[in-house]
Write a protein that binds this DNA or RNA. Sequence first.
DNA 1: AAGACGAAAGTGGTTGA
DNA 2: TCAACAACTTTCGTCTT
Length: 307
Amino acid sequence: MKGYIKKCPECGSINLLLNKEKGEVICKDCGLVVEEKMIDFSHEWREFDHEQSAKRRRAGAPMSYTRYDRGLGTSVGQKADVYQLDTKERSKFFRLRKWQYRISTAIERNLKLALAELKRVSSYLKLPKSVEEESARIYTMAVQRGLVRGRSMESVVAGALYAACRRHEVPRTLDELSEASGIDKKEIGRTYRFITRELGIRILPSNPVDYIPRFASALKLSPETQSKAVEILEQAQEAELTSGRGPTGIAAASLYVAALANNEKRTQREVADVAGVTEVTIRNRYKELLKELKLKEQIKKKNKKEI
DNA sequence: AAGACGAAAGTGGTTGA
DNA sequence: TCAACAACTTTCGTCTT
């Protein structure tokens, strides 16, 4: 968590002060609270045996970023007990409750809506829990830093999900995210780039291999073909055919070639569709693969054997 | 007729002055 | 901030099976 904040978003100062007690990061120069509600993960005690540990442990259910209040909400009590108080106390009570309500309506109402949307999209895409949690965390930070302003909530949610997928190496294409969330692909890409830049999240370029299993199963290709495709992909990476190219295109071309070599031919159109690229891109990658890896011979040999 | 192939023009994003 | 550029797409005509 600490690693995400490098400088003050307001004045750009790197002079940040961490206040552990309050769980806040404050900019020394302009006073902006850069991040709040941080968690201190450090132990302030040590335990030497099971009994001590049981005595000292005091945490409850795990906190989840997928709950808008992280499962730790507070609300000022219900009306029932108010009537034991005198008039003065009672008005104080109502004042407090009003404030509580106002505070929660600001950030938390947004979060509540956003996280509902996030869960919806995430379950639509059948994303693992860890990714959902990560994206919720990213979204929460984006809200705290005011990055949602001027952008639609949904697009930021989609961007956060995309980022979380990439970080956990379960890549989904922008097209899939777009279909699931109903946000324009370009918009998601823009928001994704914006929030990762602003939050200083480092994302490795996605590995084409991560796409293979999903594409292969969508095309109903055999496991042999799938591993063949991975093999081809590795050769391609050795030959430095992969850098700078769209990972989905490379994955698609490898699958196409592998299917061809294993007599499970799929049309370029079919492969292109599941990979979310065009036939032309597949052709280009395919051509490079043939040229650089001399796969032509391999395929010919294979065909001869079949005959 | 469908699929594969390639050329040409257009798009959105990155980079370097 | 703008122009050059690389990757990718769209579109379309031609060739192959």
